[in-house]
Design a protein around this nucleic acid. Structure first.
Lengths: 242, 242
DNA sequence: TTTGTAGTAATGTATGTACATATTAATTTA
DNA sequence: TAAATTAATATGTACATACATTACTACAAA
């Protein structure tokens, strides 16, 4: 790992420093609570001024990644070690972050009539077809999620899109539709025959089930999404404040 | 509205400036997209250095409240909508809301030595005992949750409290401790012997597992909580906005 | 044993200064 | 007139410097 800055690079030093710090605090010893080198030292090591270094550290402190304590030092915020507050990453982004390569096992797109509930959510009639997408995803050798998504006709999807691209990117770029609000319900269930087959597990084994209602800026319904996650393969994290 | 800073106050200028900016950008004209006064001007107006002012502005920019553009100026981020989901009901409140009467099956309180992870989270040494509370709760005829809680010694619990009272009320009333931030991790698992016995289900049956880190206003760790929910008895709901 | 006090090591606050860079607006040039 | 150039103006980056505050340590005094 490279622990020095390039003073000739066009990338600002405080950005480089920030990046370096991110790598640094990913290291085990710091994850376990070891103090970072003190600012004066660190600034000397990186050959930048303390002000510039602090600029970088500040950003991470604002982000909640680091915690400073006078007379003690700066260390990784233990509260964040295991969780990532942002649950707005797409599945693929999330997995990439964890260093897992994703394979799409199945990808099945059809037009279907919505049931009562779905028509209700989308605020359309049951004779108006909607796009349904099913996919099974996971590591190259084991599937661990089975997704079912229904999209509101308003979006204008044809079904011929490249669904291998990150979904929310696709919606934003090509359909200028921005998913802004999501309401989710998470529960645990025993897998039925269908789900068990998709995830290659036994009937009755536990799955994490997530139902998700997605809305755009105007709180208009966009997507209805069901996700069945193989147990132990997925942890859902939430951060809330009052 | 007061638009000047108190240079004699013990409150740091950049904090005062930040506060002032928050008020400023709450004003209608700025909400509607009007540019803030430029940095040099504003610094002069507030009688602080540009560096200090920038420090304040930076915080709001990191927060996503303001947007800067070179040669143009700084203005309120139009895209910002404040969220704040509220899953802050206590278990009993939650259940009451659903019309379910709660019975406490077991309630076991002990003092134990924290393991490595817990000591780390609480930022204490492993030879400092912490209060551990276990309880099984559910409907009169069937248990459906098994909770384990560890409380930070700082709170000052003795173990003789009336834990039948709502927990967060107890903390607020009697120990002036307010739980403000929680980070949670939710996953599905198969029940092991212990859990199965507590919940009166079979080994291997699905449970929803929730790990919860609770903090006070100062982001100091308060409680570490593990919850095993019998499948189909509990749905976790989340609302998030970006 | 407790309480007070001085030292010290870390972060926290604040300023002044200088130059870089991006973008718009004005001006010049083809 | 249209394109290219230049100027102006806002933010962006970076440094050196100084003193304040906090909280821990150690030792002395009550």
């Amino acid at each position: 790992m490279k622990y020095s800055l390039d003073h000739k690079s066009p990338v600002p030093l405080h950005i480089q420093a920030e990046e370096l710090l991110r790598n640094l605090i990913a290291e085990e010893e710091f994850q376990n609570g070891k103090l970072l080198p003190n600012e004066v030292e660190l600034a000397k090591m990186l050959a930048i001024s303390r002000t510039t270094l602090r600029h970088a550290i500040n950003k991470l402190v604002f982000e909640g990644l680091l915690i400073r304590k006078k007379r003690t030092g700066t260390k990784v915020n233990q509260a964040t070690v295991s969780s990532k507050s942002n649950n707005w990453l797409s599945f693929s982004q999330e997995m990439k972050l964890r260093g897992i390569t994703i394979k799409n096992f199945e990808l099945h797109v059809t037009w279907v009539y919505p049931d009562e509930m779905l028509a209700n959510f989308f605020e359309i009639k049951t004779d108006r077809k909607v796009l349904k997408m099913e996919r099974v995803r996971g590591k190259p050798n084991e599937p661990f999620v089975y997704f079912i998504s229904y999209f509101h006709p308003r979006i204008g999807l044809t079904g011929d899109e490249d669904f291998k691209r990150p979904l929310y990117e696709l919606l934003e770029m090509d359909h200028s539709t921005v998913a802004t609000l999501s309401k989710e319900e998470i529960s645990a269930h025993a897998a039925d025959d269908d789900i068990a087959a998709k995830l290659r597990i036994k009937n009755g084994e536990p799955v994490l089930f997530r139902k998700r209602f997605v809305f755009d800026q105007g709180e208009r319904p966009l997507e209805y999404n069901l996700g069945y996650y193989k147990a132990d393969s997925f942890v859902y994290t939430v951060e809330s404040r009052r």
